[in-house]
Structure formats: C-alpha cells, structure tokens
Computed example of a mutant assay.
Amino acid sequence: MCEQCGPADGASGERGNQRFTALSRRKLLLGTGAGLGVMVAGLPGLTPSASAATLKDGKWCNPARGRFPAGGNYGAPRGGYPHAGQDVTNSTGTAVYAAAAGTVVRRGTGVLTGRTGKGLVIAHGGDRYTYYGHLSAFRVALGAKVAVGQHIADMGATGNVTGPHLHFETHRGGLGSTTNPVTFLSARGVRLGGGWPAIDPGAAGATVRAVQHLMTQRGTALSADGAYGTVSVKAVKKFQSSKGLVADGQIGPKTWPVLVHSLRRGSSGSHVRALQTVLNKHGAGLAVDGGFGTATDSAVRAYQSLNRLSADGLAGPKTWEALVG
C-alpha cells in the first residue's frame, strides 16, 4: 500500500516540530548508520529483553482496525529500502488510536525522511516511539500528552499510496531504529489490526478495571481498582476453571469471549460499567454508572461507526473485541 517508506534519519517535515537534543541526534545517527538507511532491527521480529508475561501489562493497545494488505509487511522491499512499518488497511476516516501513552513530538507532512503524507510521532519514553502515517486528519495537537487508546487521528490516503491505510511503525532504541510492529505488539499482548488481547497478572489500567467489573457481574465481587493482583487473578482462574479453560490467569482470546456480555440500550449492571470503562478509554467521557441509556448508546454507535463496525448499538463480541484490544 505504501509506495515509499525510506530511511528515518530524524529529519522533520515541519519547522514547528519539537527539536531533539544533541545527544538524541547522536544516538539517532548511530541507529541509522549515519543516515544511510533504516535500521530494521530484529527481523523477522523483536526479541524482548523481558519475559513475554511481564510485557502483557495493559500499557499497549491496537492503533487501528483493519487487515494487512499484500505487500504491506514489515521488511518488504520499498524503493530500495526495507518497508519500515506494517500497513493496516481500512476506509478513510477509520479511527487511529495511540498505541501507548506518550507525547506527540512530530505532527505534519513528511515528518520523517522518506515518509510521505500526513503523519505523527509519539514518544513513549525509554527511547521508544511510534509513527502513524498517511493520515487524513489529526485529532491531537503537537506537544499533546496522550493516553493509551486515545483517538489521535483518522486513517487516510495522503502521500504516495495506492489506497487508504495506516502505516504504523515502532521504534526502539531511539527514533530511527525500527522493529517489527506485529511482533513488538504481540509481545505486549496486542494483535495489530484487531483481535482479542492478552492480559497477564500484574497488568493495570482501564482494561483491568473492565475485567473486574465483568467478574463482578459473573458473581465474584471485585474492587475495580485497575490492578490485576492476587485477588483478581484468583477469581479469574476460578472462572476459567468453571468454563473448562486453562486456569492460568491470563485473560486472552479464549477467556474474553466467555467473560463479556452482549449488551444494548436498557441493560444495567456491572457488565455495563465494564463497557463504559473501555468506551472511556477511547474518549467517550461517560459516567460509569452501570446504566445503558441514551449517552452510552450514542457512544457505542459512534465507536462502531469510527471503527467500521455495524453501528447498531449492540455491544456484542465484535465490538468488545475492538474496545478491549
């Protein structure tokens, strides 16, 4: 889908974008072979320094729903350089979300060398960055602090492309040293493009609060404190055992479908609180009151529309999968 994705040497496409320190620039040159090309690290993928279990902590999410188009894979030849990211195709206007919390450090057209069209870069700390390319619209400002799952942009077809898609990159060890986004996110329990995530003991955040609300609805009252600790893990293991699943405490693709409920306007209970919690992760701004009324119905339909789901107001498995992913 991308006609060109050349080296990321730190050059900015807008004078107003945030400047990096001299030290960061020296690291950048080391990471890109003094600007001779993209450092494509870890082909065919990333080997995390920590165990996979410790990475599935709820800090990362899927940036956009869609499919992988032919020829849009990480490392594929592109204009003399390996393709620096993974393409996720869907229609123009599909929502693009921050894959993790951070700061928007670049925003504009051609914000990385060799990248065309509208794009933005988020710095996540620890020399980790994500790049979102070929956007049709921005939903956040340069310098904005963003939360994981926040709506930051809309998918588009700006620049040298053959059709609308998100070109998504992960940079590790500094901006300019890319890793395979599919394996990078997979190691963190996320399926790029869509799919149920995996959450391990020790995780924290909105998705964990949703799990705790869902477990309360299933008959085990839990405090929705967002910390997946001993009490919550024990409850999930008991639930998994009752459903004939491996009782390992990991909330993954086999546990999610039997944990969630199909909900619509008029539903009430802790499962609705779970739904409101994950809608709020994506910016809905709902009161977490357990009542599926007009505001929640509107939020569900808006989310479904932005993510190219059937906008019928029914929060079924496909909508849940997108929301928690």
Results as ranks from 00 to 15, higher is better:
residue 119 G to D: 12
residue 45 G to Y: 02
residue 196 W to A: 00
residue 103 T to C: 05
residue 99 A to C: 15
residue 188 R to S: 02
residue 127 D to P: 08
residue 238 K to L: 12
residue 260 V to F: 04
residue 74 Y to H: 06
residue 219 G to M: 11
residue 254 K to H: 10
residue 34 A to T: 08
residue 35 G to T: 09
residue 61 C to R: 00
residue 310 S to Y: 11
residue 73 N to S: 15
residue 192 L to R: 01
residue 71 G to F: 09
residue 171 H to Q: 12
residue 154 D to V: 01
residue 39 M to L: 13
residue 290 G to L: 07
residue 140 V to H: 03
residue 54 T to P: 00
residue 222 L to G: 04
residue 61 C to V: 15
residue 126 G to M: 06
residue 59 K to S: 15
residue 271 H to Q: 15
residue 14 E to Y: 06
residue 24 S to K: 08
residue 163 G to Y: 06
residue 175 L to G: 01
residue 51 S to P: 10
residue 48 P to I: 05
residue 71 G to T: 11
residue 294 T to K: 13
residue 36 L to N: 13
residue 205 G to Y: 01
residue 278 V to G: 05
residue 122 I to C: 04
residue 91 S to D: 12
residue 38 V to G: 09
residue 203 A to V: 06
residue 235 A to D: 05
residue 170 T to H: 01
residue 128 R to E: 14
residue 114 G to D: 08
residue 198 A to V: 07
residue 298 S to W: 00
residue 55 L to T: 02
residue 33 G to Y: 07
residue 200 D to W: 05
residue 96 V to G: 02
residue 73 N to Q: 15
residue 290 G to Y: 04
residue 281 K to L: 15
residue 186 S to E: 10
residue 119 G to K: 01
residue 92 T to R: 13
residue 169 E to A: 06
residue 207 T to I: 08
residue 271 H to R: 10
residue 102 G to L: 03
residue 134 H to R: 04
residue 243 K to V: 00
residue 119 G to C: 13
residue 262 S to H: 03
residue 311 A to I: 03
residue 188 R to P: 01
residue 166 L to I: 07
residue 322 A to Q: 10
residue 150 Q to L: 09
residue 303 Y to L: 12
residue 306 L to M: 12
residue 211 V to Y: 01
residue 232 S to I: 02
residue 28 L to E: 09
residue 130 T to R: 00
residue 59 K to G: 13
residue 217 Q to G: 12
residue 146 V to P: 00
residue 107 R to T: 03
residue 312 D to L: 11
residue 229 G to F: 03
residue 98 A to Q: 02
residue 210 A to T: 05
residue 35 G to P: 06
residue 317 P to Y: 05
residue 287 A to T: 15
residue 302 A to I: 04
residue 227 A to C: 08
residue 220 T to Q: 13
residue 302 A to H: 04
residue 92 T to C: 08
residue 158 T to K: 07
residue 76 A to W: 05
residue 253 P to S: 15
residue 86 Q to F: 00
residue 183 T to Q: 11
residue 315 A to H: 01
residue 112 L to E: 14
residue 309 L to V: 09
residue 132 Y to M: 11
residue 155 M to H: 03
residue 107 R to M: 13
residue 287 A to F: 01
residue 63 P to H: 06
residue 91 S to W: 08
residue 321 E to M: 15
residue 271 H to T: 10
residue 233 V to L: 04
residue 150 Q to S: 14
residue 212 Q to G: 07
residue 62 N to W: 03
residue 316 G to M: 03
residue 200 D to H: 15
residue 183 T to Y: 05
residue 140 V to S: 07
residue 222 L to I: 07
residue 113 T to Y: 13
residue 136 S to F: 05
residue 127 D to C: 11
residue 111 V to L: 10
residue 140 V to T: 14
residue 52 A to D: 11
residue 124 H to I: 02
residue 75 G to L: 05
residue 48 P to G: 08
residue 232 S to H: 02
residue 114 G to L: 10
residue 60 W to C: 02
residue 11 A to E: 12
residue 198 A to C: 10
residue 220 T to C: 05
